[in-house]
């Protein structure tokens, strides 16, 4: 009876294949002799067989279509398209820059102009240096627009 109690505690592990070779051999030796433990092991195995038979249920109809739709709406992060508003803003910025060039002429940032400006006004030189850096970092920014205007004024002067 004591052997049965010890083995009973191991039967489920045996049934799921969780025992090492030596423990497995002990269980097998016991159930070979003990009818009750053999019946218990059989019941545990039948339980596993029932579970195997249940199978999976399909996801509701239309699930793939919904997934597909969302895949289109939310592209992968690595290849994520810019949102439409971002493209629109970029277009507006380009148009504004083009208008600025048309209205006030092309920028003159050549060295001689800057040298001349420095000779005329040291403060203007500092401003233009700062502007040059800004233009280099962000050629389409508002700062660039201000710079264009200032360069034009300088030319006029």
């Amino acid at each position: 009876m004591k052997a049965c109690e010890l083995i009973r505690g191991k039967l489920a592990e045996y049934a799921v294949g969780g025992l090492r070779r030596r423990a497995r051999a002990r269980v097998e030796a016991h159930v070979g002799e003990c009818e009750r433990c053999r019946a218990e092991l059989a019941a545990l195995k039948r339980t596993g067989a029932l579970l195997d038979e249940v199978g999976a249920d399909d996801a509701p109809a239309g699930t793939w279509e919904a997934v597909r739709q969302r895949m289109t709406e939310h592209p992968r992060a690595g290849v994520r398209a810019r949102p439409r508003w971002a493209w629109a803003m970029g277009g507006v910025a380009l148009v504004l820059v083009a208008l600025a060039v048309l209205l006030i002429g092309p920028p003159r940032v050549e060295e001689p102009v800057l040298v001349a400006a420095a000779e005329a006004d040291e403060e203007m030189q500092a401003t233009m240096d700062g502007h040059l850096s800004a233009v280099w970092a962000a050629p389409l920014s508002d700062v660039a627009g201000v710079g264009l205007r200032m360069a034009a004024l300088e030319n006029d002067g």
Binding site: L41, A43, R46
Partner: peptide, 10 residues
């Protein structure tokens, strides 16, 4: 109810 029975074939 469903799993108790004969141990044959186990």
């Amino acid at each position: 109810e469903y799993v108790e029975g004969s141990d044959e074939g186990m």
